[in-house]
Write a protein that binds this DNA or RNA. Structure first.
Lengths: 250, 250
DNA sequence: GACCAGAGTTGATCTGAATCAATGCCCGAA
DNA sequence: TTCGGGCATTGATTCAGATCAACTCTGGTC
């Protein structure tokens, strides 16, 4: 169980939980929850109630905070950072089923065991609710339920796109699609795509090997479609060609 | 636009729509809705209101009733039969993202365009709601929303499993997983798996070619794990070996 | 700076599934 | 009964991406 401390920035002190190897104090991120994920659908009284119930947690890079197949006790809302969601086979083969960023909810599973694992890519802050409490909150605030349904619908659409990618696209089409998706996600119209994940993560997300991802990125660079910067960032140089490639027109 | 007629089995006549080449009269399936999909979560008043809003439609085999990318006007509940959901690339490559049977809801998309197409495998009966009306119904009956959230969560888990299959499993593992999934779905513990879809559908679902599906089924037969009956049914002869193969243990 | 470990790139070779091709099996129509 | 067309099976060959292997780059530590 993580350490507990209190927040210096709230009128009323709130619990904060720290997870990971380094246990340095962290601010309560109730304000983060308010600003980023919940306030758009529930009113202030709802937020107060949510904050009451949540325990803010800090997760360090590389740390796995949901274990695939483990008992599904909690429900999470990410307040900052990025996590990877994955499933694995007994022999170690892995499939990353998605990346979740600020504002996303995790742990919707109807079953009482998590259907996937989750690991922090960078330093992640998240709100942790017990599932029992979450259920009561949903009873009281139907608008919260609508918010979750919308998110689930969007994830379902993303999952269908990913199935098309994994089942029917070539390696080049997969990498091109991935870069464009990431750009959409980053909301950066200048064409700079931040890639906080390793080549291994990209490979496990696209159903390829590290070597194929690397070769394909090199090929895209030689073709003049992208420029590979330092520190895990890629610049898209020829958007239309990349889009044509991603959609299978080429 | 489909023909409209009235139902002989309701005290108050109800509209029925017929789609497809043969336009024979069909019973109103409000009772089907009541029995199979909605009554477990909403009360009788809710059902009356739902039935009021729905138009029952008959869809013939092979007919596509949701066009990928088309305007998302309606929301569907399947009252009998099986449909395939799919996405396609411009050059014709297809990925079937799932099969939906009795009781399933379709058309959840948040966007105003369908993200996938849907086609009837056999004769399908479904209730069609306008999305605007559906929204009002959800406002009135929060329990309906919970039902949809549960269904979406389950589909999300299925989608994640499918991503693992498409990204990381071999052809043999894919076919074995598919047969076991279908058996779960059919709820037939005797090990007989009905396959209402063609080899082409199976291939498009598993990210393989027709030939590979056929070869793999023949291999499973030679290995004694299955027996291939007539008329699209398969008998599972060695469940434990098939399960080991499906989960990648072999 | 020197060292080291992990991440990434590039080349050579192999292989599982795709592709190309031929044949068999139904089943409905004439 | 024969014919024809869609679906399925099986065989031969090809190829995209995996695997195996060598090497380079980077960033952190001493």
């Amino acid at each position: 169980m993580p350490d507990q401390t209190t927040c210096q920035f709230e009128a009323r002190p709130r619990r904060i939980a720290l997870a990971g190897a380094h246990r340095s104090p962290e601010y309560c991120l109730t304000c983060g929850v308010r600003a980023r994920s919940v306030c758009s659908v529930v009113d202030d009284a709802d937020i107060a109630r949510l904050a009451e119930t949540a325990v803010e947690t800090l997760v360090l890079p590389g740390r796995c905070f949901i274990e695939e197949g483990g008992p599904a006790t909690d429900f999470f809302n990410i307040t900052s950072g990025t996590v990877k969601l994955f499933k694995a086979l007994p022999d170690g083969r892995r499939q990353i089923t998605g990346f979740a960023g600020t504002g996303h909810f995790l742990g919707l599973a109807v079953s009482d065991h998590y259907a996937f694992g989750a690991e922090a890519l960078d330093t992640v802050r998240l709100c942790r609710f017990s599932r029992a409490r979450m259920r009561h909150l949903l009873d009281d605030f139907p608008r919260m339920e609508r918010r979750l349904l919308e998110e689930a619908s969007n994830e379902l659409v993303a999952a269908q796109n990913q199935m098309l990618l994994l089942g029917r696209k070539t390696a080049r089409e997969r990498v091109a699609s991935f870069l464009l998706d990431r750009m959409q996600d980053a909301l950066d119209p200048t064409g700079v795509v931040p890639l906080p994940m390793t080549r291994a993560d990209i490979a496990d997300y696209l159903g390829l090997t590290i070597e194929t991802v690397s070769r394909t990125l090199s090929w895209l660079r030689r073709e003049g479609m992208i420029a590979i910067g330092k520190g895990h960032a890629i610049h898209i140089a020829a958007m239309p060609r990349l889009e044509a490639l991603a959609s299978g027109d080429a």
